[in-house]
């Protein structure tokens, strides 16, 4: 299954503020629900998201059980130089999912 959808402008002017949109596939099970025979469904959420721009952290978010399934995050950064944006989602068990996108700055 495709795990993440990333939307980063392919090109940007130096100094331009660009919007980055990320969508990741995850059930975000709260841990507060029970199944149809009454057993608690264990918590399974992404708890941290980090975006690195050429190795520098530009955005970080902590996620909690109230966040819906398939979390969508949109944020802004300043296009400083051409390079790669790396995205990392970390769940409660420290499993990570990664994705990356490149941006050309002129």
């Amino acid at each position: 299954m495709a795990r993440a959808l990333i939307n980063v402008p392919r090109k940007a002017r130096r100094g331009e503020i660009v919007e980055i949109k990320t969508l990741v596939s995850h059930p975000m099970e709260t841990g507060y629900r029970r199944d149809n025979i009454g057993n608690p469904i264990p918590r399974d959420i992404i708890s941290r998201f980090v975006c690195m721009y050429n190795g520098t952290e530009v955005f970080r978010a902590d996620l909690f059980p109230a966040v819906a399934a398939n979390p969508f995050l949109s944020f802004f950064t300043v296009a400083t130089e051409s390079g790669t944006l790396e995205f990392q989602w970390t769940d409660d068990q420290d499993n990570t999912q990664t994705a990356s996108a490149s941006i050309e700055v002129e």
């Binding site: 299954m1 959808l5 939307n7 949109k21 969508l23 398939n70 969508f72």
Partner: peptide
């Protein structure tokens, strides 16, 4: 409207595979 924001696209991409 935006396929990069529409979570239904996860299933479409999975289906394509």
């Amino acid at each position: 409207d935006d396929d990069s924001v529409n979570p239904g696209m996860f299933w479409v991409l999975d289906g394509e595979e």
